[in-house]
Nucleic acid binder design. Sequence first.
DNA 1: TTTT
DNA 2: TTTT
Lengths: 154, 154, 154, 154
Amino acid sequence: MAGVNKVILVGNLGADPEVKHLEGDKVVANLRLATTEAYKDRNGNRVENTEWHDLELWDGQAKVAEQYLRKGSQIYVEGKIKSDTWQDEQGNNRKKTRIRVLSFTMLGSRNMGQDTASTGSGQATGTSEGMRGNQMAQQPSFENEEDGSDDLPF
Amino acid sequence: MAGVNKVILVGNLGADPEVKHLEGDKVVANLRLATTEAYKDRNGNRVENTEWHDLELWDGQAKVAEQYLRKGSQIYVEGKIKSDTWQDEQGNNRKKTRIRVLSFTMLGSRNMGQDTASTGSGQATGTSEGMRGNQMAQQPSFENEEDGSDDLPF
Amino acid sequence: MAGVNKVILVGNLGADPEVKHLEGDKVVANLRLATTEAYKDRNGNRVENTEWHDLELWDGQAKVAEQYLRKGSQIYVEGKIKSDTWQDEQGNNRKKTRIRVLSFTMLGSRNMGQDTASTGSGQATGTSEGMRGNQMAQQPSFENEEDGSDDLPF
Amino acid sequence: MAGVNKVILVGNLGADPEVKHLEGDKVVANLRLATTEAYKDRNGNRVENTEWHDLELWDGQAKVAEQYLRKGSQIYVEGKIKSDTWQDEQGNNRKKTRIRVLSFTMLGSRNMGQDTASTGSGQATGTSEGMRGNQMAQQPSFENEEDGSDDLPF
DNA sequence: TTTT
DNA sequence: TTTT
């Protein structure tokens, strides 16, 4: 059946991206994203609740993340839930849930984190196809399709 | 930072809702929802990929689910990702991810599952407050807030 | 700035798609989609509120819409807000807002309506009046890129 | 029918909020929000496309907007499409589409616009560990129900 | 385990 | 003009 599996997150990275360059020019980046909600409990005390998400980005996106994202970066993310299941050594069924990122956008302005001053020249070039997204020298947004093999948009 | 943690799903239930009535008038329903995407692989073969989601609904919502949803029901769901972490007997860190449903809407028409012919009379009454949602005898849509103690909308 | 402009709708078509085949193999379809919300007012009376949306689909998507969608069809839509501005004869600034559809999915099940037997092997059995139970043999879900020239996904 | 009518925007305000205090303690704020997408056209030239949205906020939300939002503020918005129709003096049918905001969140950190230094001691500081530095006086996130009469969340 |  |  034709379904919908969509995740939208706005949060901050808990650490720098972990990027692995695989054979065949494949690149994968793993990010830890915190989304925090604050509310008042029934006693009127402010409570903060943080959820941590494991994000997975591939190829062009992973490269953008590697170049521009840092611990603390605030991003808007669109993706889908994707879980892996396996059996552990004890024979228990295990499941790990990740967010497969389909597009993301850096938020905030002014600066983009410590090492990003270098992006200033950037012409934020996108490929014409498969790039609904936006990107700029300072605020890259990047979209990738399922098996996208897009190059860096810069 | 004020974050966003939003999930939107459209899929079908893999089984009837599992509902538990807890002390203090609390009710919780657990649903298994399948979201299936189909695409053509590079050889042009149609591939289907199903993701299973664990949904958790509380109170008024849980009651609506219990009454109207059945194995196979197609629903639109809005919620947020919520994970529990603990240590298992081996001392390993474990994590289970669920979707905390904030609103859902039944899709399709005609019939609503095997026993729902009886819903025809439907009062489908909503509370004025906290009910952005929609509901009807035959196509209930229901929203609940964080600690919502909403009654059944009927 | 890298922005986000996203619309998610679930509703029913108020009329059959209006499709125009333009030069250069371009096709555009215009749909009228109703999204209805129901709630109880402060007197406890059920109130229904319908919003009508003008949807615009291009090329491959437009063809799918032409072939499978009919008045009454229930669909899930993802798109973006897009407005045209101009001056009318009186010199007044005018603005028309549309939803540019980026993907849609037919909802509901069972049967698909009158002329859809042609869609393939498919069951695609039709109701005579109004083509409400939608979907096809394969339940089309269709995504299109900005300038996508995708063919029919079947 | 139970429908879905949802809009998600991330963009910047084109002007300070316009706030009107109505009788009966009602408050309405109107915002102009720009969402910009950038892409490369078929010649490889970077093209920027800005869509302007008319946002409408009520009551508690309107007050938060009045207090914290300024021209240039970057926000995440969730709402629904809402159009008014009428006949103009020439007897033409007219329609104006707005976004009725259901929740919004301020994005970015650092500064919040010209006069907002007063909104707290705060420097919107991130913590060194895990960057949880979350919502603060300076980064309000606010949700309102349909006829919500919520007070300021501070 | 759903749906097609 | 849809849907219930």
